[in-house]
Design a protein around this nucleic acid. Structure first.
Length: 721
DNA sequence: TTCCAACTGTTTTTT
DNA sequence: ACAGTTGGAA
């Protein structure tokens, strides 16, 4: 009696979807229908009467994935998805903490700090405590704090085996204290606080244990240790975890993701059978062959091989360019020809390892008049003008929010200088009160000097209180509009010459509030909920959707997407795989997984390109081809290089221009910058720098995986390669 | 308060 | 190369 929506599943998929009530691990390869299986599992559980919508909890990493899941479920089942808990880890934890804020020892309207806010708060604490920011950089403190929280460790549980750690621990403790005083939580805190809430409150745990019989997790390989512990707590002994993931696509170890959770899940939940989804519905055969061969080099794998019933398709096209400029030129020409053949621009992706690489590509595309869209960069709710407006709203929602107050107390400027600020900060610190209270007290003591009305500390306080009164009883979008208008933000950006875009964004914020209120999924449309929404869902960062434009993004952001044609550019040793990854544990394996993700984005055509020289950080760098080229069978690749003559001339010209001072070295010896060389011990490399002459002449060679080496020409047994 | 010069740190990113 | 930040002078 399989419902009609199950037709069209392959055997493995069907097995996964209709598994009996038990914990399971679905190893779902790229393009194997992972999201389909996950959503159908939910639909099947409900449709077959095994589960009520309220007993389902589904977790994803991004809001986009959560929305997608809800849409697909609604399409299959005529049910109200409101009772279902589908969301991101952070979103679900937020929901739980709001519902039980008292038990979690949080104010009802607790605010959420994004990473910017968190860093600002840490900076503030370091300054107040007179900590040397050189020795204890705020970024490192943030990393330390978040790392500890993700390990489930509070400040009092932190190590103090050396001076550095003792100091960090102290900062962590102060930070915890300050957050609690202000009633704010950072992203990691959402998870940890929720975890502790469930761990320490048995009645509550029992409540949720008896409710969520079915826990489903998307992208399980991306979970961190704390998220796994949270899941474990929610599952208890009776409930089933249905985890879908792909260890080969684990590319977020650097932010705490632990693919080891896949092994732990099998152990902790006695998972008997791991179901592998290996049939790929996306790519042609050669593309999969290349991806399979590459990823097979990794040692730590659960093991998986993608296959397709589709044709072998086209070989991978490999292009070696002399310079990054030339590489970009090649890509532009190929894109044009693909477009002429009828491939939509939006169905073509240009992938690269790091964001800095997009510039030269953008330049070439712009000159060629090709429409393109760059992913990444600043998101809507992270823009300064939007954050300013949100800070006003935050202060209206809660007096205690020092972070919000500091952001806007003198913006737009109203004559509150650093001295005044220091005074109220000292007063607040000494008496452990909020800056708002301190400010009020100070102006009270000074009898509100008859200065320019609306200026100074008193002016600020009067204004905030006026805003509070005026927005009483208004609807959310009206509140937002009123605050933008009467805080002085609007006037400020109207007079700024670069303020037009910012004004538009402020208008957009009012629209966002209206959309939020109009969203049927949203039960509570109060100010605090909107602020949480803004923090948890930073918003899209790209405008003009729907236009047919080429897609530019990093390999990381391409995960989960697919395109007719994909260009992977900058495939140079040191860039991709990135040199920094070599010092990390299993760094190369993670780079290889990233390359695997990039390869498997392509449905039909795949281009791999690299440049012998490239501008990076303001200097020309010379590199050899990525070692990944040696890991893909040569038979799968079609080399489409331009004429050898051009290849010979280009690098030496560039080298001579960039390094005029070493011209002597160059003319008197057979070596030149950009030259490919071979060394008996280090293998192939490229000369990237030179100094000295005669017997003192030394050259710096980039050996790729072995790094940069200075070699004395007199002794080193270098040969031209 | 505002402006400009000097200085810094540049892998990947979601919440 | 370049963007973002900081410090000092006006």
């Amino acid at each position: 009696m399989n419902p009609s929506f199950l037709t069209g599943l392959n055997e493995r998929q069907l097995e996964a979807v209709t598994l009996p009530h038990q914990s399971a691990l679905i190893l779902a390869g790229a393009g194997s229908g992972k999201t389909r299986v996950l959503t159908m599992r939910i639909a099947w559980l409900i449709d077959s009467g095994q589960a009520s919508p309220a007993s389902v909890l589904a977790v994803t990493f991004t809001n986009k994935a959560a929305k997608e899941m809800l849409i697909r479920i609604s399409a299959m089942l005529p049910i109200n998805t409101r009772g279902m808990w589908v969301g991101t880890f952070h979103g679900l934890c937020n929901r739980m903490l709001r519902a039980h804020h008292r038990e979690a020892k949080l104010p009802q309207l607790f605010q959420i700090l994004d990473s910017q806010d968190q860093l600002a708060l840490i900076r503030r604490l370091l300054k107040a405590a007179n900590v040397d920011e050189e020795k204890f950089p705020p970024k490192q403190a943030a990393w330390y704090i978040n790392g500890h929280k993700e390990e489930g460790r509070r400040a009092h549980e932190a190590d103090e085996h050396d001076d550095f750690n003792r100091r960090m621990k102290e900062i962590y403790a102060r930070y915890e204290e300050q957050c609690q005083r202000e009633g704010v939580v950072d992203f990691a805190e959402l998870l940890l606080r929720c975890y502790e809430l469930l761990a320490h409150n048995e009645a509550l745990r029992e409540h949720y244990l008896s409710r969520f019989k079915h826990i489903l997790v998307d992208e399980f390989q991306d979970t961190n240790r704390l998220q796994y512990r949270w899941l474990k707590l929610l599952a208890g002994k009776e409930n089933a975890i249905f985890a879908v993931g792909d260890d080969d696509q684990s590319i977020y170890a650097f932010r705490g993701a632990s693919a080891a959770n896949m092994q732990d899940l099998q152990k902790d939940f006695a998972v008997e059978k791991v179901i592998k989804l290996e049939q790929n519905y996306r790519s042609h055969g050669y593309i999969l062959d290349a991806a399979n061969a590459l990823i097979a080099r990794n040692q730590r794998r659960l093991g998986k091989n993608l296959w397709t019933v589709d044709t072998k398709g086209e070989l991978l096209r490999v292009y070696e360019a002399a310079t990054d400029l030339e590489e970009a030129g090649f890509i532009v020409e190929e894109v044009k020809s693909l477009h002429r053949e009828g491939v939509a621009l939006a169905d073509i992706a240009l992938l690269y390892r790091s964001n800095a690489q997009s510039r030269v590509l953008e330049h070439a595309l712009f000159s060629a008049g090709l429409a393109y869209r760059v992913y990444g960069g600043q998101r809507f709710f992270e823009r300064q003008e939007v954050k300013h407006a949100l800070a006003y709203l935050r202060l209206l929602a809660s007096d205690d929010d020092d972070s919000a107050l500091l952001r806007i107390i003198n913006f737009p400027t109203r004559g509150i200088g650093s001295r005044t600020l220091e005074q109220i900060q000292d007063m607040a610190a000494a008496r452990n009160i909020s800056l708002w209270s301190a400010a009020k007290e100070k102006t009270g003591m000074l009898q509100a000097p008859a200065a320019v009305p609306g200026k100074g500390l008193a002016g600020f306080i009067v204004m905030i209180e006026a805003l509070r009164v005026a927005t009483q009883g208004l609807k959310l979008p009206e509140v937002v509009a009123h605050v933008i208008e009467h805080s002085g933000l609007k006037t400020y950006y109207q007079t700024e010459k670069e303020g037009r875009d910012r004004l538009e964004n402020l208008d957009e914020l009012v629209n966002a509030a209206a959309a939020f209120v109009g969203d049927v999924q949203q039960e509570d449309t109060g100010l605090a909920t909107f602020l949480a929404h803004a923090a948890l869902e930073a918003g899209d960062n790209q405008a003009q959707a729907g236009v047919d434009a080429l897609q530019l993004m990093t390999a990381h952001s391409a995960k989960g997407l697919e395109f007719h044609s994909v260009f992977i550019s900058g495939l140079e040793e040191g860039l991709f795989p990135h040199e920094n990854s070599m010092v990390e544990n299993d760094g190369l394996e993670e780079e290889r997984r990233l390359m695997y993700v990039a390869l498997t984005r392509a449905r039909r055509r795949l281009y791999l390109s690299y440049a012998q020289s490239r501008m990076l950080h303001g200097q020309t760098r010379y590199s050899i081809a990525s070692s990944f080229f040696q890991e893909i069978p040569e038979l799968l690749m079609l080399r489409i290089n331009r004429s050898p003559a051009a290849r010979f001339i280009a690098p030496s010209t560039v080298g001579a221009r960039m390094q005029p001072e070493s011209a002597g070295t160059q003319s008197s010896s057979p070596w030149r910058i950009g030259q490919n060389v071979a060394h008996p011990k280090f293998g192939n490399g490229v000369i990237v720098n030179a100094e000295g002459r005669g017997a003192d002449a030394r050259v710096q060679v980039n050996f790729g995986r072995d790094g940069l080496k200075w070699l004395a020409l007199e002794y080193a047994k270098l040969t031209a390669a």
